[in-house]
Write a protein that binds this DNA or RNA. Sequence first.
DNA 1: GCCGTTTTCGGCCCGACTGTTTTCAGTCG
Length: 573
Amino acid sequence: MNNRELADTFTLIADLLEIKGEIIYKTLAYRKAAESLAVLDRDAKAYWKEGTLREIPGVGEAIAGKIEELLKTGKLKFLTKLKKEVPPSLAEWLKVPGLGSKKVGLIWKTLKIKTLPQLEKAARAGKLRDLPGMGAKSEAAILAGIESLARRSGRIPLARAYPLALEIAAALKKVPGVVSAEPAGSLRRMRSDVGDIDILIAAAHSGAVMEAFTSLPGVARVLGRGETKSSVEFGDGVRAQVWVHPPERFGTALQYATGSKDHNVKLRELALKKGYSLSEHALKRTNGGSEILCATELEVYRTLGLPWIPPELREDHGEVEAARQGRLPRLIETKDIVGDFHIHTTGSDGRLSVLEMARAALKRGRKAIAITDHSVGLGIAGGLDIARHERQAEEIRRAQETLGGAITILHGSEVEIRADGTLDYPDEILAGLDLVVASLHTGLRQPREKVTARALKAIRNPHVDILAHPTGRLLPDREGADLDMEAVFAAAAEAGVALEINSHPNRLDLDDPHARRAKELGIPIAINTDAHSEEDLDRLFYGVSIARRAWLGKEDVINAWPVEKLLAWLKKR
DNA sequence: GCCGTTTTCGGCCCGACTGTTTTCAGTCG
């Protein structure tokens, strides 16, 4: 049982306990443990073997025991019993916007129904409106929620949400009286997918902003509209909300709206210890109640005795403690990147020639690139056979001659890791390349032992420099290969092979917990665009965001090294 | 159920909006 499955199990337990009416803090404890497991950078199994399960945040005696039982037997007696008391299908109802555990429990117990279709039928038949505390409006809201659930495919990939958020913010910035408009929430923390879009507005009055927001083009439904907060749903089910706060309170408001929830809890606890109550409106002295207004986030953190914490770190993964002790990392920035070592051209499935790609990279300030077209085995992408591959060397030589010393063009390859773990080109070809990127594209569904063995074999090939998009995941739908990541890390650390953070917004692979673990083990990281066109070169920003979420500095990333250092590293390998 | 530079027991962040309410509960972030 992997971390994801463990996390899902504890989330289910929390859902069912909450519907059952268990005290809220117990259900919160299960959710906290589930969240920790979901973002854990190593297999829970490794903690179990070491006897350190309780070092996982939110895991105490009881939950550690349950993890152990799940890892040992794949089952959990506690959950089996719970499922008999509360039908597990009810957990699905909680996903319906506007439905919480209280109403779910009420409807289930009163009407004796337990599936989503039964719920929809009951709502259509007008059977919900007569329940205590409910009326025709809540019945209609539940129906609308069920329909909205069907439209939405779940979480929104950053690649869709980020441009939309910028668009909304730009539109609202134009409203008279608006001082600033900033995306907040998980999007500002650059999570690879987000639940909804949050925009924070600084303005003295909110009326005009709310009017403009709720009538934006594409808005299908207004979910709520108030003085300080409104929310809407777009046609494709994406939800957005805005908060409006006075400019002199924008700092506390933006801090609050950026989250994460757990980070805010930590901060508010710290505030209480220092004699303040922290809310989105202000810091308030607990003795006397006078307010301290913060127009910027910097003032909020400073008042609490902390340096400003970059949004990407605000996940309650130790950043508040690090800030208190003055050991926040100096995070890598997009402007630090000088190299891009995973680029395609017309040689395989790219759109531009070597020269055109090199010019485009140069225009973006890159000082070194590697041309890494697919190898012959990936027929679908027009992989290069050995003869065509060798002819490409000439194309690269001419491009280098044309551009002179402004940019270093390396001749590389994205070489397939075959089903048996061997590479797609013979060693003598690989030996002649400047840089070798190895990738898994096929056989991703192989069992853990087999697919891991392939990755390890590739890492141990002395010619391989970078393992690209290690798990092969595609957001939002395709899960990555079931790799034993600890084994991959151990092999990469030993061989000195770099692991890639692929900047394609549907990949973002390594993800941030794995990238953070790789850094801990001293493994060099490559942030590459995997560009197939000129515009693709601009998505570097997404990869850098993942690196920042993983606490990486520029020293950890080979693309940020001076070219001489990079060349020396390649030569030594 | 977890956790501790206030506590090993008694807390566990704080507020907006909606609907069904005549003072509040439920949901959400």
